[in-house]
Write a protein that binds this DNA or RNA. Structure first.
Lengths: 334, 334
DNA sequence: TCGATATGTGAAAACGAATTCATACAAGGT
DNA sequence: ACCTTGTATGAATTCGTTTTCACATATCGA
């Protein structure tokens, strides 16, 4: 079923059918109605491949992200991106890089080959890759990574105040000995800012956080949370509260606490980060909630805007996290 | 950078370049090498849109699934599908139906329009939609849904023995009062078979399961697990063990147990299902593990085979689940 | 020496849709 | 009567590939 068939059926030229389809040019009322009728009757669905070739634009957007599992963070970004794309009538070609630089580059070429209108990079691996994508003339938006690139659109979370506030909540409840579990800060601004906010809050409260309270993991494996929590508990001066800078670590940390029969928050106070697993843990944790789906949606909007106007000024959209209180910080005597 | 440019640079015709690209037809050794050199130098990447139009095949496969969040089950299927696709050099166009029938149909048309080579339906919503997709001449494979359709390739899990075995493990540990929490059985074979296996095992052990031990939820919301577990605990005869037919429910169930300060397995034994959340809970649950990624991978293989040979006999691939013991079933006196 | 057959090459025609161009006939102003 | 301008339509070209077809030339057997 193609334009030619419709044209034949309606006794007009393909050009006229195309004009009806796009509501463009001059078409007499009678023909327009006739063509429309045939279109409906034969349930014509345009061939987007042919259309894409002709228009040099496919109405598809590439999305490169690490993987939707096991980190629900990525699944939620993907959901946000998809929802917005759907309501905008565009499609997303999703590719999982597994944080592999070579694969990421292959995907960029693949997307170029498929003539996508733009690429959304969620936590891209390599600065070079992003630059090469731009060099290929593809509009690009970066989510959750800064990379010191100025000529790109970006969506970031301001983690310093988010982390600061969360730590503040713990401090306000009377805690002084507050541990920290997070991914090593060299990874990206995500990790360093989360750490930074904690340090800042402690400092402002006049507390010098002891080195043995601060534990770094190499990856986002829940088991790292388990082991690091054990180190905290078995250290010579056990903290009364722990700020866990990713729900992924909280998963493992709570497993250890369960083993040790330590109750939250009676025996130890815990605050998570991300609000991905926090609501599914026992007990559901107070945590810092990030507008993850929102970021995904925004990224689609931005990329669509960028496609419309390639020369517009580059934007950095900064979003805020909010604290979700589920009562896992115990108020202790002052 | 297109074939024409390469041809000009190498002083040959586009046809010759194409022949080098596909290693087909006759090309002299000298020209082949020259063209290859130019190809490499200019880093030629073929335009798959043009290629797709010409070949009437895009090398893309559509994947329609409910959503990767909050149910990690779908995220893992997606991962398996993606991995296999990547190693096979094909791409997946992933679309989330949110189990909405109308949307699912829109997506089928969209995929037709984009000339995908096939469609993978993970938990499709509507039998009619699948049939319409087939009617459109698109190869189809169904994952995790039977729908009484014989002329389709399918991948299923045999849940009856899986469920039977899990229940058996609990029985073998000496339990007689075993509760069941699952989604209502009218949903699909997934739910009814899981329930069936439980009933069978109980019956074979000579136990008539009491109605008040069997609790059904309307959806896969963790909170349903919370509420149903409460009903079980507050019932007049509390079971000593509960077989929870989805980790999603186990999430909520464990939260209630935590509130009530009941320890697993000391105070109550629990077995989950799916092995999606089970390893992330406190405590990590014994559960029935499903080869989810495996199913995703298999679906890609099947759809690729089907594309190669449209007339081959239809297959139903049945995979097995396995019991993962994490010690959450307490051995009780006989 | 004359077909066959193998080898090598490019021009041209698809694939399905969008768009430019050419052509046509009105109605309106001068 | 003639030139605009507005309306209406279809033929032909284009998008970047692949593939068929036609046309070479070389090699081999009889």
């Amino acid at each position: 079923m193609q334009i030619k068939d419709i044209a034949k059926q309606a006794n007009v030229s393909p050009a006229t059918v195309s004009r009806v389809l796009h509501n463009s040019g001059y078409v007499s009322k009678e023909k327009r109605e006739l063509v429309q009728k045939v279109l409906d009757e034969l349930n014509y669905v345009p061939n987007k491949i042919a259309r894409g070739l002709k228009n040099q634009s496919t109405g598809m957007i590439g999305h490169i992200l690490p993987s939707p599992y096991p980190n629900p963070y990525m699944a939620r970004i993907s959901r946000g991106v998809d929802e917005e794309a759907y309501s905008r009538g565009t499609q997303i070609l999703t590719l999982y890089s597994y944080s592999d630089e070579k694969r990421e580059w292959e995907f960029i070429q693949e997307l170029k080959s498929r003539m996508v209108d733009g690429i959304i990079f969620t936590s891209p691996v390599s600065r070079e890759n992003v630059k090469k994508a731009i060099g290929l003339g593809i509009p690009v938006v970066m989510v959750e990574r800064s990379m010191n690139l100025q000529d790109v659109d970006r969506i970031l979370i301001d983690y310093v105040p988010a982390s600061y506030n969360a730590t503040r909540k713990i401090l306000d409840a009377g805690h002084k000995d507050i541990g920290y579990i997070g991914k090593q800060t060299s990874a990206s601004y995500v990790e360093s800012q989360r750490h930074e906010g904690y340090l800042q809050a402690m400092k402002d409260a006049g507390i010098e956080p002891k080195d043995q309270w601060i534990k770094f993991a190499k990856d986002y494996d829940p088991m790292s949370g388990y082991h690091l929590m054990r180190e905290l508990l078995d250290g010579e001066h056990m903290p009364t509260a722990v700020f866990i800078a990713s729900d992924m670590f909280a998963v493992g940390a709570l497993q250890l606490l369960y083993e040790r029969k330590l109750r939250v928050p009676d025996d130890i106070s815990i605050v998570g980060f991300d609000n991905t697993y926090a609501d599914k843990l026992s007990p559901p944790l107070s945590t810092v909630s990030i507008p993850i789906e929102e970021m995904g949606r925004a990224s689609v909007q931005i990329i669509i805007d960028r496609c419309k106007n390639v020369d517009a000024a580059f934007k950095t959209l900064t979003m805020n996290a909010t604290f979700v209180d589920r009562g896992t910080v115990k108020r202790i005597g002052i």
